[in-house]
Nucleic acid binder design. Structure first.
Lengths: 123, 123
DNA sequence: GGTTTACTCAACCAAATGGTTGAGGTTTCG
DNA sequence: CGAAACCTCAACCATTTGGTTGAGTAAACC
């Protein structure tokens, strides 16, 4: 009795991705990685923070699946992995009708949602 | 010497929004609010959690600017405020070239970024 | 007026987060 | 080989987070 249009939005992956993005240091690191491969050292360099501190941020990004690490000798080279980022971006699609200029998007959204939500019991 | 294409991504607002979205309870509450105004009680009802616990989640959403509260008598009515959500969605635009199907998007992105990033000093 | 309803606030708690330092472990370089 | 460079790990610390319970306030109802 909860399955239709289920309001539940449980997704440990999405949790991890959004929590990762909730830190400015990590968002900055992603920007760097958007320009291409970077070592942990290069990622750490811009920040007024210990190397180990920055390294932990990299690990958070890695654990969230946003970054892949390739160990080559003593340097750990990091790459952006776009898939999870794309998933997070897709999460917003449901809400885009609230700011999208296109009116048929709104129409579609309303047509899809109005089935049981608009006429739900007011208790 | 850091201003051009600055890798820094500091934004307390974005921090708060993404951290808010990093919790499944709060994402679910936003889904409910997408269907229209809801009281704190209505928002709390689906969750196996104390009323006060759910109430704190609502406050987090409010503090992040994702929700506006209107007090009418004893009931606190909540509405979705899309602006911050739209800003968060826009954050992904920079990265959309990594998963976008349209090749000219990629071209544009490369043209705009290649100026000083591709030929940056290799140290 | 008194009770129920809707909600917040404060205190508390455990766990997670964001940071530090210090001690390693490998590579690479001279 | 020895030293420096690159990076992780463990321990520690303070703060935040996500949850609880209990008390308290304000509005609505009988």
């Amino acid at each position: 009795m909860v399955e239709r249009s289920s309001v539940l939005d449980a997704s440990p992956e999405l949790d991890a991705v959004f929590r990762s993005l909730g830190d400015p240091t990590r968002r900055s690191m992603l920007r760097m990685l958007a320009d291409g491969e970077r070592s942990v050292g290069e990622l750490a360099q811009p920040f007024a923070m210990s190397f180990a501190g920055a390294s932990k941020h990299v690990k958070v990004l890695e654990d969230a699946g946003l970054v892949r690490r390739t160990i080559r000798g003593r340097i750990h080279s990091c790459n952006l992995v776009p898939a999870r980022l794309a998933e997070a971006d897709k999460w917003f699609d449901f809400y885009s009708r609230f700011w999208s200029k296109r009116l048929d998007d709104l129409e579609d959204a309303l047509r899809n949602e109005s089935t049981d939500t608009t006429e739900r019991e007011t208790k």
